[in-house]
């Protein structure tokens, strides 16, 4: 199925990752090993869906891991508006193995806002919420 019009694949340095097999639905851990979220979807750069692709367009690049409401649309169909997407930029990703490891701390990320909200509004207000069980 190779067409002569396509730009040939750039020489691959490093590992080849399969989006479906190695990225989607993988657990995301931050640099301290704390779970942040699961990879609910991926965002690619490049032309929009259904647009004519001119000859010589560079291959799309993975921009960000997505999470949040996009899981619902991935399961039930449809697509949330771009403003509702919660992104983890690909440059923050440090390693992809059985889990996706980030090179940054999870605390301040957009992906953690629900966790922060539940923590500050509910759990931290119950006595003993900050108690270390160990």
């Amino acid at each position: 199925m190779t067409s002569p019009d396509l730009v040939p694949l750039p020489p691959v340095a490093g590992r080849i990752l399969d989006a479906q097999l190695h990225l989607l639905d993988r657990q995301v851990l931050d640099t301290d090993g704390v779970p942040v979220t699961t990879v609910d979807d991926l965002e690619l750069s490049g032309p929009a869906l259904g647009e004519e692709i001119p000859v010589g367009t560079p291959a799309p690049v993975l921009d960000a891991l997505l999470t949040g409401p996009v899981l619902g649309t991935r399961i039930f169909g449809g697509r949330p508006p771009s403003s509702r997407l919660i992104r983890i930029p690909w440059k923050d990703v440090a390693d992809v193995g059985v889990v996706v490891r980030l090179g940054v701390r999870g605390g301040p990320l957009d992906a953690g806002w629900v966790e922060r909200w539940v923590r500050d509004k509910i759990i931290a207000r119950i006595p003993g919420g900050r108690h270390d069980p160990r």
Partner: peptide, 8 residues
């Protein structure tokens, strides 16, 4: 662009 897995 969002990479949506097609509905099977």
């Amino acid at each position: 662009m969002v990479l949506n897995t097609p509905a099977s």
